[in-house]
């Protein structure tokens, strides 16, 4: 195979050894980065489970009682009871309310930004939304504690301003930027040819939005909402400060509650390491892990189901 151009001087020399090795190293490093995500998740799960596990076999512990009893008296001297039902209900109420408030606003914002406003305003709004997303959660909690709680108290006449409504509002404000920016991406990803097709048939802007864009972008929009739900369930600092921190099955949105996350944050520091209380808090962590896992898997299935149709 003596191709003249390959035998002559024009043939480049083999690459030096260090370059070959360097490339191999780089490849290894990238591979490690890829796999590390899995390793970290497994490691975290393993650690949390290891801390919680012993309590599962202790004779004081009863899983039904843990999940179904609203009585949370972890430090009682005479009768220790670990029921997290009130905390589960608290989490569900606050995040449910937050998502309920946030979804219409954020979808509305996303539709406005991607379809209705001019290019200048669009830039401004996108920057503002990014700023909102960057506000630390403790600052939100602070606002919840001092600003919105007062407003809630004045508007509703509730005895305490830090309650489900207040927590829901703060959490909704935190979810809006996330849901809105991801929804806006989803709408932006709808090919412009669909808009032109509908427009050329005489559709109005609203008809384009709800007959073409929302159906075409529904996967992305659903993903956005579920990410918002994930955020709402997992958020800790702000709800700790804004919901009143009372272990209590609520009877209305003006009652104070405590959430799973806030409970862990508030009590773990005071629970003696390796004590039963400490292990129960880790178990609560596993419960949270489980809830978000279920949400994500459902999301995945829903999205896939829609795609197949």
């Amino acid at each position: 195979m003596a191709l003249p151009s390959l035998t002559g001087k024009s043939l480049r020399p083999a690459r030096p050894l260090w370059a070959v090795c360097g490339e191999k190293m780089l490849e290894l490093l990238i591979r490690f980065c890829g796999v590390s995500a899995i390793i970290f998740v497994l490691a975290i799960f393993f650690f949390v489970f290891k801390e919680a596990a012993p309590v599962l076999w202790s004779k004081n512990f009863n899983l039904t009682q843990f999940l179904c009893s609203p009585e949370w008296y972890p430090t009682s001297v005479s009768n220790v009871r670990y029921g997290v039902l009130a905390l589960i209900v608290g989490t569900a109420c606050v995040s449910g309310l937050a998502v309920f408030l946030a979804v219409p606003f954020s979808l509305g914002a996303a539709v406005f930004i991607s379809e209705f406003c001019g290019p200048k305003l669009k830039e401004v709004l996108k920057i503002v939304i990014e700023l909102l997303a960057a506000i630390p959660s403790v600052v939100w909690g602070f606002i919840g504690l001092t600003v919105t709680s007062k407003i809630v108290q004045q508007m509703t006449g509730a005895p305490v301003g830090v309650n489900i409504l207040n927590g829901g509002i703060i959490l909704a404000l935190m979810c809006v930027p996330i849901i809105a920016s991801i929804s806006e991406d989803a709408l932006k990803a709808v090919p412009d040819t669909y808009r032109e097709a509908a427009l050329a048939l005489g559709a109005t802007r609203w008809q384009i939005v709800y007959r073409v864009l929302l159906p075409a972008a529904k996967n992305g929009l659903l993903a956005a909402v579920l990410l918002g739900v994930g955020r709402a369930v997992g958020e800790t600092m702000a709800v700790l400060m804004a919901t009143g921190h009372a272990v209590n099955i609520p009877h209305g949105i003006l009652d104070s509650v405590r959430t799973l996350t806030a409970n862990i944050a508030a009590e773990l520091g005071e629970a003696p390491a390796q004590s039963e209380h400490y292990r129960i808090l880790f178990l609560t962590g596993i419960l949270l892990f489980f809830i978000t896992f279920v949400i994500n898997v459902t999301a995945d299935f829903v999205v896939r189901g829609i795609r197949q149709k």
Partner: peptide, 17 residues
Amino acid sequence: VELRKSVGMVFQRPNPL
């Protein structure tokens, strides 16, 4: 809306919804 109703358009790349 009425104008576009009476003037149909077919695009370069087929764009069914």
